[in-house]
Design a protein around this nucleic acid. Structure first.
Length: 864
RNA sequence: GCCCGGGUGGCGGAAUUGGUAGACGCAAGGGACUUAAAAUCCCUCGACUGGAAACGGUCGUGCCGGUUCGAGUCCGGCCCUGGGCACCA
C-alpha cells in the first residue's frame, strides 16, 4: 500500500539503500550488454558543488540510466581535477597546505554527489593530485622527451617585478599584479613545450571523423588550429635574411615596408643603436601576454634605421618595429602591403608610409585606396603594377612567384598553423612535478623511470611570494642520476591541463600499478558520450585529443579519438543584485536576500533588500559566481525539496546546450509535478489491481488516451535517446499525466489503460528522477528495481489512427481545419479544403493558381 | 580586436527537414474549498481591434532588406548579448 503523500527524504533514502544493496552502479568488464562509456568532465574540488556541476552530472546520469535501461553495460565514473591555483589561493588565505584543503573538499563534494543519486561507479574514483595518478604524467612526459615531442625553449610570462614571481593571467588585473599592484612586465624564461603543432594536421583533419560533435565546437577547433597555406618569403639584409610568412604572396610587389615584433632579433639590433627604438621595445615589454590584450591595444610602431631588400625588385624597404606583430606566430615578422591589408593600411596611413596598389578588379582599373572602404582585399582580382606578373590571378601569381623566389633561395610554399606548441611549465607548487634534474656537469637529466614518481611534498604552504618548492631543500637538493654529483631538482610543475588530458583513460584501469593504462582502456574507450561545459570547447578537448594521439603513437592504446560524442552544456545563470557604495565600490546581494516587486502584469518593477526594505539595483542575469554573490547552494535545495526535484528542474528548465536561468519557483513547479504524479498513482492503485488490457475492447476515449500514451513513448524515446532535449521530453510526459488525471474512467478497461499509461510515465521518468520512480514502480505493483526494467517502446498498433486533421491556408495564412481519412487522395483533400466556408470567403473573386498539399500537415490554396 | 553561440508573451522555453508561432512550466489575475492561512482544484492570460455572445480580423519571433505558395527557421547587412582567446578550471 502506498503512502498518500510524497515524502522525498524517505523515498530517496530507500532508493539509495536499494541500489547499494544491488551494487547497481558498479561497471564490470564482463557484464552482459554492449559497453557504453558515459563521462562527465571532472570537477575541480573547490569546496562545494555548484549548480553547473549539478546540471552537468544530472545530464550524464540521465544518459547513463537511459542506456542501462536499453541493455548497455554502462561505465559512469567520477574523479577530481585536484591540482591548481585555487588551492594555493586558499592556502595563502587560510595558511593551510593545499593538500589538506583539497582532500577535505573532495570528501565533502563526494558526499554531495552521492546525495544527488548519481549512478557513479565510485570504485574507479581518481584524484589527479595522487602520486599513483601523476606518476604517469611524469612517465609519459619522459617518453615524449625521448621522442622529441617534449622540448625546452624560452616562453613569455607575466612577471611581477615586486614579488619577483610569475603571475597567471587571472592574477593580472588591469595590467597590474593582483597582490602588489605593480605594473606587470613580460619576461622570457625557459620552459618545456609539447609539440602539438606536429599533430596540427591530424587534429584538424580528424574533426571530419567526429559526426557526434557539435558543429560549433568543431569550427572553433578548426579556427584555433588555423591552418593557412602560404609562402615563406626572405628579405635579404646586411646580416642575413629576414623571413616572413604570408598568405598573400601575390601582393608581394605591393610591399612597402616590413614590420617585426618587439622581441625580434632585428628589433634588438635596431634598439642597440637607437635609444628611441630601445624605449619603444621597452614599452612593448609592459602589459600582459594575452592575445586579447595584444589585439585590442592601439597599433603603434617605430621606424628603425635598418632596411631589407625586396626579394624580387631589390628595392630597399624600411624595417619597422610594431606592437601588433606577434613573435609567437609565423616568423615574428610581416611584409606590409597597405593597399590590400586592412591592418597595414591603418598603420601606413597613421605613419605616412607609401601605399601601392597591385591588385585590380578583373574588369576595372586599379584604385588607389583612399579609405578602408576602398581596399581591394579580394582574391578574385588580377595583378597590376607588378611587372611580369601583371594580369595573373591569385593562384597563378603565387605559383609564378614561388618559382622565381625558389630560384633565388628566397621563398617557398609553406603551411602555417595558428596553433602554437603547448607550454606546460608552471612556476607553481600545487601541481605535478616535472621529472628533471639539473646538473652543472650533465645539464638537464631526466629522472630515471625507477625513481618515479617524483613526489610533491604535501605539507608546504605557499605565502604568495612564489613557488615554495624553490626554498624547500629536501625537494630541491638531489644527486645527478648520471654522474652522482650534487644537483638541483626542477621545481616547475605541469599545467593542470596535462592532468585532465587523460584522466578518462585511468578510470578504466585505475588499479594498474605496472602501466599507465592496460588492455581495459581499449575495452571501455573511446568515451561514447562526453558531457561538459562549452567553455572547454577548445583547450581541454584539443589537448585531450592530442594526448590520445601521442599515446596511440607510442602503442599504449588502439583508438584515435577519445570522445565519440560530445554534449556541451550551457552555463547556469542567476539574478544579480547590487548597491553602489561610496568611491564606486560595489556590494552584491544574494537573490535570496532580495524581494522582487511586480506590477499587475507580473512585470518586475524593482527589488528591495529584505533586511532594510530599501531598493537594490537589478543587474540582469549572470553566471553564478562567488564574486557576484548569486550562487545557489545545491545542498540546501536537496534538503528542502529532495534530489529528484532539483534534477527534474535542471532538466526541464532549458535544453542542455543553452544557458539555464535559475528560478526557485521553477523548482517549486517541478516539485508540484512530482506530488501530482504521486497522487495520481496513489489514487489509481487505491482502486485495486487493474485488469489486463484488451486493446480490441477499448472505446474511443480509451483508444485516444492509449494512443497519446504510446505517442508519448515515441516522442520521449526520441527526445531522451537521440535529441537530448530532456525539457521537451518532460513536457510531453506532463501532458500525458494531465490527460491521465483528466480521465475519470473507472471501468475495468479504463483502469487498464491508466495502469499502462502510468507505468509508461514512471519508466520514462526513471532516468531523470530515479528515486521517486523506484517507489512509484513498487506502488504500481512491481517487485524489482525500476532501473532493471527495459526502456518502454510504443506498440505500433496503438498508434494507428483512421483520420487526420489538416490545416488549411489561403496564401500561407491559416483559414481553417479539415478532417480527412488517413488514406484520402490528393483530389479529395483539395476538394475538402476548397469546400471550407472560410476558405471560400477568402478565395472568392480570385483565381486559384495552385494548391500545395503537404501530406499529413496542411493544404495551402494559392489564390490571386 | 579575432573565433563561436544566442535574441520568440510578464518570465524559462516549444515549434525536430521551410509548413498551425507561443506546447509544457513559472509568474500574475479571477474563482472553489477552508473559521482563516497554507496546500490543492478550476478558469483567464501576445498586442491591437470587431461583436451582446458564439466567433472573427489585423499585426507579431532583436532591426533593415531579400528568396519562397509559405520564413522564428534560408540568404545579405546591422544592433544587442553570452562563451573562448593558449598561466582560472
Amino acid at each position: 500500500m502506498m503512502q498518500d503523500a510524497y515524502r522525498p527524504a524517505e523515498v530517496e533514502a530507500d532508493a539509495r539503500a536499494l541500489w547499494e544493496k544491488l551494487d547497481a552502479d558498479r561497471a564490470r568488464e564482463d557484464a552482459p550488454g554492449e559497453k557504453y562509456y558515459c563521462l562527465c568532465m571532472l570537477p575541480y574540488p573547490s569546496g562545494r558543488l555548484h549548480m553547473g556541476h549539478v546540471r552537468n552530472y544530472t545530464i550524464g546520469d540521465v544518459i547513463t540510466r537511459y542506456q542501462r535501461m536499453n541493455g548497455r553495460n554502462v561505465l559512469q565514473p567520477m574523479g577530481w581535477d585536484a591540482f591548481g591555483l585555487p588551492a594555493e589561493n586558499a592556502a595563502i588565505k587560510n595558511k593551510v597546505p593545499p593538500a589538506k584543503w583539497t582532500y577535505d573538499n573532495i570528501d565533502y563534494m563526494r558526499k554531495q554527489l552521492k546525495s544527488l543519486g548519481f549512478a557513479i561507479d565510485w570504485s574507479r574514483e581518481v584524484a589527479t593530485c595522487h602520486p599513483k595518478y601523476y606518476k604517469w604524467n611524469q612517465w609519459l612526459f619522459l617518453r615524449m622527451l625521448e621522442k622529441g615531442i617534449a622540448y625546452k625553449r624560452t616562453g613569455t610570462v607575466n612577471w611581477d617585478p615586486v614579488d619577483k614571481t610569475v603571475l597567471a593571467n587571472e592574477q593580472v588585473i588591469d595590467g597590474r599584479g593582483w597582490r602588489t599592484g605593480a605594473l606587470v612586465e613580460k619576461r622570457e624564461i625557459p620552459m618545456y613545450y609539447l609539440k602539438i603543432t606536429d599533430y596540427g594536421d591530424e587534429l584538424l583533419g580528424a574533426l571530419d571523423g567526429l559526426p557526434g560533435w557539435p558543429e560549433r565546437v568543431k569550427t572553433m577547433q578548426a579556427n584555433w588550429i588555423g591552418k593557412s597555406v602560404g609562402m615563406e618569403v626572405g628579405f635579404p639584409h646586411a646580416d642575413g635574411v629576414l623571413k616572413v610568412f604570408t598568405t598573400r604572396a601575390d601582393t608581394l610587389l605591393g610591399a612597402t615596408y616590413v614590420a617585426v615584433a618587439a622581441e625580434h632579433p632585428l628589433a634588438a639590433k635596431a634598439a642597440a643603436v637607437d635609444p628611441k627604438v630601445a624605449a619603444f621595445v621597452e614599452e612593448c615589454r609592459r602589459g600582459g601576454v594575452t592575445e586579447a590584450e595584444l589585439a585590442t591595444q592601439e597599433k603603434k610602431g617605430i621606424a628603425t634605421s635598418l632596411t631589407v631588400k625586396h626579394p624580387l625588385t631589390g628595392a630597399d624597404l624600411p624595417v619597422w618595429v610594431a606592437n601588433y606583430v606577434l613573435m609567437g606566430y609565423g616568423e615574428g615578422a610581416v611584409m606590409a602591403v597597405p593597399a590590400h591589408d586592412e591592418r597595414d593600411f591603418e598603420f601606413a596611413t597613421k605613419y605616412h608610409l607609401p601605399i601601392k596598389t597591385v591588385v585590380r578588379a578583373k574588369d576595372g582599373q586599379a584604385v588607389q585606396p583612399a579609405s578602408l572602404a576602398d581596399l581591394l582585399l579580394s582574391k578574385d582580382g588580377v595583378l597590376c603594377h607588378s611587372g611580369k606578373y601583371d594580369g595573373l590571378e591569385y593562384g597563378a601569381a603565387i605559383d609564378a612567384m614561388a618559382i622565381d623566389l625558389g630560384a633565388k633561395g628566397l621563398g617557398q610554399k609553406r603551411v602555417q598553423y595558428r596553433l602554437r606548441d603547448w607550454g606546460i611549465s608552471r612556476q607553481r607548487y600545487w601541481g605535478c612535478p616535472i621529472p628533471l634534474i639539473h646538473c652543472d656537469a650533465c645539464g638537464d637529466v631526466p629522472v630515471p623511470d625507477k625513481d618515479l614518481p617524483v613526489v610533491l611534498p604535501e605539507d608546504l604552504a605557499p605565502d604568495g611570494s612564489g613557488n615554495p618548492l624553490n626554498k624547500y631543500k629536501p625537494f630541491v637538493e638531489c644527486s645527478c642520476p648520471k654522474c652522482g654529483k650534487p644537483a638541483r631538482r626542477e621545481t616547475d610543475t605541469m599545467d593542470t591541463f596535462v592532468d585532465s588530458s587523460w584522466y578518462f583513460m585511468r578510470y578504466a584501469c585505475r588499479d594498474s600499478d605496472a602501466a599507465m593504462v592496460d588492455g581495459r582502456v581499449d575495452e571501455w574507450l573511446p568515451v561514447d558520450q562526453y558531457i561538459g561545459g562549452i567553455e572547454h570547447a577548445i583547450l581541454h578537448l584539443l589537448y585531450s585529443r592530442f594526448w590520445t594521439k601521442v599515446m596511440r603513437d607510442m602503442g599504449l592504446l588502439k583508438f584515435d579519438e577519445p570522445f565519440t560524442n560530445l554534449l556541451t552544456q550551457g552555463m547556469v545563470l542567476n539574478h544579480i543584485f547590487l548597491r553602489k557604495g561610496t568611491a564606486g565600490s560595489l556590494t552584491y546581494y544574494s537573490p535570496d536576500e532580495v524581494d522582487l516587486q511586480h506590477d499587475a502584469d507580473g512585470r518586475v518593477t524593482g527589488a528591495v533588500l529584505k533586511a532594510d526594505g530599501l531598493p537594490v539595483k537589478y543587474d540582469g542575469m549572470g553566471t553564478m559566481s562567488k564574486s557576484k554573490n548569486n550562487g545557489v547552494d545545491p545542498q540546501m535545495l536537496v534538503e528542502k525539496y529532495g534530489a529528484d526535484t532539483v534534477r527534474l528542474f535542471m532538466m526541464f528548465a532549458a535544453p542542455p546546450e543553452l544557458t539555464l536561468e535559475w528560478s526557485e519557483s521553477g523548482v517549486e513547479g517541478a516539485q508540484r509535478f512530482l506530488k501530482r504524479l504521486w497522487k495520481a498513482v496513489a489514487e489509481h492503485v487505491a482502486g485495486g489491481k487493474a485488469p489486463a488490457l484488451q486493446a480490441s475492447a477499448l472505446d474511443d476515449a480509451q483508444q485516444a488516451l492509449r494512443r497519446q500514451s504510446h505517442e508519448t513513448l515515441t516522442k520521449v524515446g526520441d527526445d531522451v535517446g537521440r535529441r537530448y532535449t530532456f525539457n521537451t521530453a518532460i513536457a510531453a510526459i506532463m501532458e500525458l499525466l494531465n490527460a491521465v488525471t483528466r480521465s475519470q474512467d473507472q471501468s475495468p478497461q479504463g483502469r487498464a489503460v491508466r495502469q499502462e499509461a502510468l507505468e509508461g510515465v514512471v519508466l520514462m521518468l526513471a532516468p531523470m528522477v530515479p528515486h521517486v520512480s523506484e517507489s512509484l514502480w513498487r506502488g504500481l505493483g512491481h517487485t524489482g528495481s525500476v532501473m532493471a526494467e527495459r526502456w518502454p517502446v510504443a506498440d505500433p498498433a496503438a498508434l494507428k489512427r483512421s483520420t487526420l486533421d489538416l490545416v488549411v491556408q489561403v496564401n500561407g495564412k491559416l483559414r481553417g481545419r479539415i478532417q480527412v481519412a488517413v488514406d484520402a487522395t490528393r483530389e479529395s483533400i483539395e476538394k475538402a479544403a476548397l469546400a471550407e466556408p472560410s476558405v471560400q470567403s477568402f478565395v472568392q473573386g480570385k483565381d486559384v493558381k495552385k494548391i500545395v498539399v503537404v501530406p499529413g500537415k496542411l493544404v495551402n490554396v494559392v489564390a490571386l
